[in-house]
Simulated assay, not measured.
Amino acid sequence: MALRGSKVWSWRWRRNPLKRRADKVEAWIVLGVWLLTALTGVLAGMGATRSVERSLARERVEWRQVEARLVEEAPGTFAGQTGTASSDQVWAKVRWAATDGSSHTGQVRVRPGSPSGTTVGVWTDREGRLVTRPTTASQAALRAWLIGGLVGASAAFVPFVGGRMLRGRLECRRIDQWDTEWERFGPMWSGRRAEGGSW
């Protein structure tokens, strides 16, 4: 069974007196499309993975955690819970100083009812703007591979679809050639069958 499947897949490369020039061209097109699809997907995926890894590594180096203070009391009432889930927190205005000494303000999530002046840890970039907590090395690797896989698959889709369209055009052209040849030899074939009787 495996041998039969192998013959089906490799028929374009075997010697055959009935094989036409169009079949040879299609064989090379199929091979070229598969190679280009694989190469494009791998290169694009690896490039995207490395780019994301470098970007996230730069964030881990440049982003800093600084202390910010509430400039006003947080809305809501604090019932003494110690949970830090986002559903237990509210937005409040805080102020912090960047590395160059400039003052910045922004909104962060804190416990309800936190008094003015409460210290809160926030993450900032090189310009002192609020950012999220940077990813860990393992999180960055996972994210980079996921993005790289998506980019690689998307990039490989382009030559694959292009190859399918080209093969479709070749198939249409081959059918047209068959029609033309049948118009030439069909009447001759029908005449011979009429002379020799029905089969």
Rank of each mutant, 00 (worst) to 15 (best):
T40F: 07
L31M: 13
V158M: 02
R133P: 00
W9T: 12
S198R: 12
V110F: 01
E59V: 06
S6V: 14
G47T: 08
E183K: 09
G196S: 12
V66H: 05
A79L: 13
E171N: 15
A57I: 04
G106I: 09
P159K: 02
G163A: 04
K93S: 00
G152V: 09
W28Q: 10
N16A: 08
A194I: 00
D125T: 07
M188A: 12
A141M: 12
M188H: 10
S6Y: 11
P112R: 05
V30T: 12
R173S: 14
T105A: 14
S138W: 12
E183Q: 11
L150A: 15
G106N: 05
E73L: 02
G148L: 05
P112G: 09
L43A: 15
I147F: 02
R12P: 11
G101E: 08
V131F: 04
A85E: 14
R174W: 02
T136G: 15
T77C: 04
A153K: 04
T180Q: 12
L56K: 06
L43Q: 10
T40L: 09
F160R: 01
R69L: 09
V94D: 04
F157K: 00
G149H: 02
V131P: 03
E73Q: 14
G121W: 05
A155N: 01
R129Q: 13
D179C: 12
T105E: 15
R64L: 09
R126H: 05
G186E: 04
P134M: 03
D176V: 01
E171L: 05
V151D: 08
S86K: 07
T40R: 05
G47L: 02
R20L: 13
R109Q: 15
T118Y: 11
F160S: 07
T84L: 14
W189H: 09
T136Q: 06
